[in-house]
Amino acid sequence: MTAHANHSEENKSLRPQEGPKRHIITFIVSIFLTALAFFAVAYMPESPFVIPFIVLIGLIQAGFQLYVWMHLDQKGHEFPTLGIWMGVFFVAAFIIVFIYWLGGY
């Protein structure tokens, strides 16, 4: 409807060093982390650390996805960032309560 799209602001938010470099680096690191996950399962199937380890590298990859590939680190993404972290906070609270006080047993 109304012309609220602010083109000059969008241009400003593109940093000068912005290029394919960060994408390539995170892509390679992500592949490396995925490979690590396969190795962990293949060589230490009995270890209790395998699942926490895979969850951890999964979180790192999710961070790459959000902040590098989906541009969450750029200007104008304050509300999505706030929303995501608020959701994470709420869900963390729910999980803590579920773990300790689910009740009914």
């Binding site: 729910f94 309560v97 579920f98 689910l102 009740g103 009914g104 047993y105």
Partner: peptide, 13 residues
């Protein structure tokens, strides 16, 4: 269904 390993309190939560 608690008998089958479920938990009815999860609904309340």
């Amino acid at each position: 269904d608690a008998a089958a390993g479920g938990n009815e309190v999860i609904w309340e939560h």
